[in-house]
Design a binder for these strands. Structure first.
Lengths: 189, 189
DNA sequence: GTCTGGCGAGAACGATCGTTCTCGCGTCTG
DNA sequence: CAGACGCGAGAACGATCGTTCTCGCCAGAC
């Protein structure tokens, strides 16, 4: 039992540490030694949990996916009106962009760095984005909007993330939100 | 004289070869040996033109910037009406996304991979995106649109690039274009 | 107490990579 | 023709990295 708990929290500690490092520096710039140091475990324990760096990368992306999903969902759920739920997505982005260590979408970054060389990473990123698209589509549908609106709103969210990361400001969230308002109004909902 | 021409074309051959490899595989996945092979030059000649891989990376991004700029400009210039010029940007994207080897925006990819570790790369990417934003702003102004429209249209273009890269389809160009039409119409131009 | 097994610390290994060096050939100069 | 130089080919070097191995220690079993 203690092993089970121990293993699980070791695993989480590794994933959390690796996520912080991968996101902050780029995956290729982080060695397993740095992950070991940050997680406070031995290299032996690290490789007992993850057979290779690739598996660790996939696990990190998985954790990032659930944190993103729960974060967006919480923000959207805090709003009652279906039409306003759509805009809540951009408010979530604005909060996120304000983080001192914001450095863009970890999935986009991972895809650009490793997508061509590592198809597990590419697939994981694709699934993440497809999942988000589906979520936005469902919000659009609930608000009575046309199916064509979903992809447009998702593209705004993607563009805001890269723009904010590169420019180093949170302005993109505001601009994307304003654009979304126009598109929603134009859609007649 | 022949040395001058020779040097220049050697330099261009190196940059072209490196660009193709960096873009296709990710910068970190390409060794200088691979660049040498693809460019058909000796390692010695390579390091005579570029003192380090970092300098080669910056040169590649510079070439990519001018190719992007001239490509977009050519497409936009082929359209007469100021309002339609704005949409021509997304037509250029649609063409690009259709390339068999399209793999997203090379600047976004480079930023995600190296932006945190290499500030010359980060600065170069920032300049590229700021330049594009300024260009879009100028097109908006020429079309008589409000200043707020420029950032919105640029965000659509950024989002389309990452979405198309990850999804592996050209749909995003169409969706971004449709969204841009709505935003332009909403702006009353 | 003794033995066993697992674990942490970190050395070690093999591969890769950025960069430099060596060597030998061809070429241009006088 | 002699000699010096420049260059291509690729070996070599040093650093880094992913991964595995060794060693010594501690905990638990009997």
């Amino acid at each position: 039992m203690s092993e089970t708990n121990g293993s699980q929290s070791t695993r989480e500690a590794i994933v959390d540490a690796a996520d912080g490092l991968f996101y902050a520096r780029g995956i290729g710039q982080v060695g397993m030694d740095a992950v070991r140091d940050a997680a406070g475990v031995s290299l032996r324990a690290l490789y007992k949990e993850f057979a290779s760096k690739d598996e660790l990368i996939v696990a990190v992306l998985g954790k990032r996916h659930s944190m993103w999903t729960s974060g967006v969902t919480a923000k959207v759920d805090s709003i009652a009106e279906p039409r306003a739920k759509l805009l809540a997505v951009y408010d979530y982005l604005a909060d996120w962009f304000g983080d001192a260590d914001f450095r863009g979408c970890g999935f986009i970054n991972a895809f650009g760095e490793l997508g061509a060389a590592n198809h597990r990473v590419a697939d994981t990123v694709r699934e993440h984005k497809a999942d988000f698209q589906k979520y936005v589509d469902s919000l659009v549908k609930a608000a009575g909007g046309p199916a064509s609106l979903g992809p447009q709103l998702a593209i705004l969210a993607e563009g805001a993330q890269t723009t904010a990361a590169i420019a180093g400001t949170t302005d993109a969230a505001r601009h994307a939100r304003a654009a979304a308002e126009s598109l929603i109004a134009a859609a007649g909902i």
